[in-house]
């Protein structure tokens, strides 16, 4: 565990907690894409299946449970909590998530390190995480309305991705056999999506229109 990895995990954790806080206390999920949240729930559910088969550390198991619990809670709130559900931008959040899930599944079946059930699903979760933010970005561009908490959520997620890349660079130079092409490329694609968003975000910000 290096400082970049820990900072990345904490940033990731903070992003999820910011979102839960917004939904739980303000009872609003305006501007939040249910599609993206459902994709993250699928990502965690397929990646952490090894929670039953391999133990790394108490920290790892604890964090996995937190990410599973929080992502499914957010989906539950948005789907089934009446007050929260009423604030959901259903008409705008129309990105077809199957267009992301199916290609990722096919890609995981074709490109993986080992052809086992757990390994293919784990690889699938990497590919899916890379693109899971897309419905959220589309929703953001459509509604052109980004409140502080939604903005912070996306900033924290982007920060988490950036820190993970620093973590991989650090591990590559300090751990003799640390080479994981699939993880790196998927992670890089994901980070580039965030970079694109930040670029757009700053252009608007500098353009004087600010953030509503």
């Amino acid at each position: 565990m290096n400082i970049f990895r820990l900072a990345g995990d904490m940033t990731h954790l903070a992003s999820v907690l910011v979102l839960l806080l917004k939904i739980h206390t303000i009872k609003s999920c305006a501007g939040v894409s249910l599609r993206t949240q459902e994709l993250y729930a699928i990502v965690f559910a397929t990646r952490y299946l090894d929670i039953f088969t391999s133990f790394v550390s108490v920290y790892n198991t604890f964090m996995k449970l937190v990410f599973l619990g929080s992502s499914f809670s957010i989906v539950w709130y948005m789907r089934y909590h009446k007050a929260v559900h009423r604030t959901y931008d259903r008409e705008q959040d129309t990105f077809r998530h199957w267009f992301l899930v199916l290609p990722c599944l096919v890609l995981a079946l074709l490109i993986h390190e080992k052809f086992t059930f757990l390994e293919v699903l784990w690889t699938f979760s990497l590919y899916l995480e890379a693109v899971a933010i897309l419905p959220q970005l589309v929703l953001l561009q459509r509604t052109r309305n980004i409140d502080n908490l939604t903005g912070q959520y996306i900033f924290l997620l982007g920060g988490y991705r950036g820190l993970y890349i620093l973590n991989w660079i650090y591990r590559y130079f300090t751990e003799p056999h640390f080479v994981h092409w699939i993880t790196w490329i998927a992670g890089l694609v994901q980070t580039l999506l965030y970079a694109d968003f930040f670029y757009y975000y700053f252009l608007r910000f500098i353009g004087g229109r600010g953030v509503e």
């Binding site: 790394v56 550390s57 964090m63 993970y164 751990e175």
Partner: peptide, 10 residues
């Protein structure tokens, strides 16, 4: 061993 390395991240 490499397995454990890749799976120790979240």
């Amino acid at each position: 061993e490499q397995d454990l390395e890749s799976k120790d991240e979240l």
